[in-house]
Amino acid sequence: MTLIQMQPRSADANPGHRTAVEVMDAGGPQVCDDMSVEVALAVMAAARTSRLVVCDQDDQRIGLVTRTDLTAVRDSGAHTDRVRLRDILGGTDRQPHP
């Protein structure tokens, strides 16, 4: 089972003008990197957000995925139900984008 960690947003949060570091430091839905693309999209829909912070098994933040990222992967011809968020991030070396 994949755990989801929710954190409340601050009242002054303005996601329109944030750097990648600010996004990674911000509260919001955090999910484990072993979550599938389909489940991540469902979490986004339920949380009413367009991005998820991805954490590894040590609960370290390793990246950020957006609805656009996940939709592109889901709609690609190479997609299977075995694709995990870690596969999209390409390992822990990937830098998150805003």
Score class of each variant (00 low, 15 high):
Ala47Cys: 10
Ala26Thr: 06
Asp12His: 13
Thr71Lys: 11
Leu41Trp: 10
Leu70Ile: 09
Gly90Ala: 02
Glu22Trp: 08
Gly77Tyr: 01
Glu22Met: 11
Pro29Cys: 14
Arg74Leu: 15
Met35Glu: 07
Gly63Leu: 04
Arg86Gly: 02
Gly77Phe: 01
Arg74Tyr: 13
Val39Trp: 09
Pro96Tyr: 06
Ala47Arg: 05
Arg74Asn: 07
Ile62Val: 10
Val39Ser: 14
Pro15Trp: 05
Ala20Glu: 11
Leu85Phe: 11
Glu22Ala: 13
Val83Thr: 09
Cys55Arg: 08
Val53Gln: 06
Thr19Ala: 12
Ala45Asn: 15
Val39Pro: 00
Pro29Ile: 09
Val31Lys: 06
Thr68Leu: 06
Gln5Glu: 13
Asp69Pro: 05
Ser76Val: 08
Ala46Asn: 14
Arg84Glu: 09
Asp69Val: 05
Leu52Ala: 11
Arg86Lys: 14
Thr71His: 11
His17Asn: 15
Gln5Arg: 13
His17Ser: 15
Val53Cys: 08
Met1Thr: 03
His17Lys: 14
Ile88Trp: 01
Val37Tyr: 04
Ala42Trp: 03
Thr80Val: 03
Asp75Gly: 08
Thr80Phe: 02
Ser50His: 04
Ser36Lys: 05
Ala45Cys: 11
Asp56Ile: 01
Leu52Cys: 09
Ser50Pro: 00
Ala45Val: 08
Pro98Asp: 14
Ser10His: 07
Pro29Asp: 05
Gly28Ala: 04
Val31Asn: 07
Arg84Thr: 03
Ser50Phe: 00
Asp12Met: 11
Asp59Thr: 06
Arg84Ile: 02
His79Met: 09
Leu3Lys: 04
Val21Phe: 11
Met35Asn: 05
Val21Met: 12
Val39Asn: 12
Pro96His: 09
Arg67Val: 10
Asp59Asn: 12
His97Val: 14
Met35Arg: 04
Ala40Leu: 10
